[in-house]
Structure formats: C-alpha cells, structure tokens
Simulated scan of single mutants.
Amino acid sequence: MGPTRKGEPERPGAELFKPLRQVIESVNETFKGQLDLEQHHGRTPAGVVARIMQRVLTLTTAIWHNDQSGQPVLRSLTAYDH
C-alpha cells in the first residue's frame, strides 16, 4: 500500500500503518546494514535461510545482552564487530 496521491482522501487504517511502516523500514535497514543480508553468500535456498537466521539470532542476542547490561543503544552490534 503506497502513499495516497495528492487530492485523494487518506486510506482507511493509514494512521495505524504509518508508525508500523517506520518500524519495518528501520528493521530492514538494520538487517541490510549491520547484518550484511545483501551479501549473504548462500548458495542454496536452505543456505540463504541458515545464514540469515544466524544473523537474526546474533542481533537478537546482542539486543538482549545490551538490554541486560544497561547499554544505551540496544540494536547496535558495533561493540561486537571485529
């Protein structure tokens, strides 16, 4: 569902989807940027899924660890990027 055109009335439910769209785009940027999902190097569909799931699990673990240790930025993997 794209944005409404100039002069069109706002679509039903648009006030619910605007914040959700921002969250989705933010998560997508995190996946592409910090997890290098565009360079996954998987050779088979199963390999792609395995590599993506490894990275999602890594980010989830980092968020949990950062939350438990009181870090100010929860989604950052910078401290673990060696």
Rank of each mutant, 00 (worst) to 15 (best):
M1Q: 10
G2Y: 06
G2L: 07
G2N: 09
P3F: 12
P3L: 10
T4N: 12
R5W: 05
R5D: 09
R5P: 03
E8G: 02
P9T: 08
E10L: 12
E10R: 13
E10F: 11
P12N: 06
P12M: 04
G13P: 08
G13I: 00
G13A: 01
E15W: 08
E15G: 04
L16W: 12
L16P: 09
F17T: 07
F17H: 10
F17W: 09
K18L: 14
P19Q: 03
P19A: 04
L20N: 11
R21V: 09
R21G: 09
R21C: 07
Q22P: 01
Q22C: 06
Q22D: 14
V23A: 08
V23H: 07
I24Y: 05
E25K: 01
V27W: 00
N28R: 11
N28E: 02
E29P: 09
T30G: 14
T30K: 10
F31S: 11
F31K: 13
K32V: 10
K32S: 09
G33T: 06
Q34P: 05
L35I: 01
L35R: 08
L35W: 03
D36V: 00
L37R: 08
L37W: 06
L37V: 04
E38Y: 01
E38N: 07
E38T: 02
E38S: 04
Q39H: 11
H40K: 14
H40W: 02
H41I: 05
R43N: 13
R43D: 10
R43T: 15
P45C: 00
P45G: 04
A46R: 15
A46Q: 15
V49D: 14
A50P: 13
I52L: 15
I52Y: 12
M53V: 10
M53T: 11
R55E: 03
R55I: 03
V56H: 02
V56E: 00
V56D: 01
L57P: 03
L57G: 12
L57Q: 14
T58Q: 10
T58R: 13
L59K: 07
L59C: 09
T60H: 10
I63W: 03
W64A: 15
H65D: 07
H65Q: 11
N66C: 04
D67H: 13
D67Q: 13
S69Q: 10
S69F: 07
S69M: 08
G70S: 03
G70T: 02
G70N: 01
G70P: 02
V73E: 07
V73Q: 10
V73S: 09
V73I: 08
L74P: 07
R75V: 14
R75Q: 13
S76Q: 01
S76C: 05
S76M: 00
L77T: 09
T78A: 06
T78H: 03
T78D: 12
T78Q: 06
Y80F: 04
Y80V: 03
D81M: 03
H82E: 05
